[in-house]
Design a protein around this nucleic acid. Sequence first.
DNA 1: ATTGCTTTTGCAATTTGTTCGCAGGTATTA
DNA 2: TAATACCTGCGAACAAATTGCAAAAGCAAT
Lengths: 135, 135
Amino acid sequence: MAKQHELREKGLRLTPQRELVLQAVRELGHATPEEVAEKVRSTHPGINLSTVYRNLETLENVGLVLHTHLGHGGATYHAAEELTHLHLVCSVCGSIGDAPIDTAANFVNTLADDYGFKTDVTHFAIYGTCQKCSK
Amino acid sequence: MAKQHELREKGLRLTPQRELVLQAVRELGHATPEEVAEKVRSTHPGINLSTVYRNLETLENVGLVLHTHLGHGGATYHAAEELTHLHLVCSVCGSIGDAPIDTAANFVNTLADDYGFKTDVTHFAIYGTCQKCSK
DNA sequence: ATTGCTTTTGCAATTTGTTCGCAGGTATTA
DNA sequence: TAATACCTGCGAACAAATTGCAAAAGCAAT
Ligand SMILES: [Mn+2]
Ligand SMILES: [Mn+2]
Ligand SMILES: [Zn+2]
Ligand SMILES: [Zn+2]
């Protein structure tokens, strides 16, 4: 029995658009739907934005991508396996820094112990002012 | 010299619409612009939604209200003096729990010490699964 | 390869949330 | 009460995201 394509393994049809959307998310790190579309268009100019939205949703449903909120606007997408860090978003300059998820481990444990709340610290960014802008 | 109205103290004109928007934010706890408009309309039916948006922005500029992001959609507004808690948003049932800001004190200190990052933990919600939905 | 079923796509229209320009109205100060 | 900023209502404009639909394409069975 031959090894299946990862999309087929998830029960999805294998279309060029879908593969390209997944590949774009993986290459871009974090990207808005518009940025994903932009990237995909470099090899597949005809792709429609609604196809990108639908595929991002589908890929998220099967666990291959995830979204996070980095700012006041829309979501950004990550490859699921890469979402291993916190996002530190600076409200002054807009820079996006990273910190290991462990940084929040105690905080997450406290919320679990005191409130029974299971926190996903990557879904929303950590918002504040970066070192450069604090001076 | 008589005590000034708080809006006048901030250099703003005292209009019925503005007072009502501020009062609505204070009474509602957290509210979307649409919800604020709804509330204001109970005593001032004619208020326009764009007036609500403009006043929320103005009131935020002078520090009387603040906005936070509780979900995937638009912002919600708080009275500035009431934003003294974290929001624990459940991704399953949508409930919004509170926790004291102190809960995050160590986390905030770590980010400051290790990254020079000054965190505002109230701007984005804490996202996860509540106790009820974990079972 | 062909068929038939089902999913996916492109496209246009729609919805939703927010902002803008402008003309008339109102709060404030003198 | 008159001058002048500021503010409001209104409609239009805008942007992001969603939807309905018919045509196209993927897939499994023949
Ligand atoms: Mn914000
Ligand atoms: Mn989200
Ligand atoms: Zn910065
Ligand atoms: Zn819940």
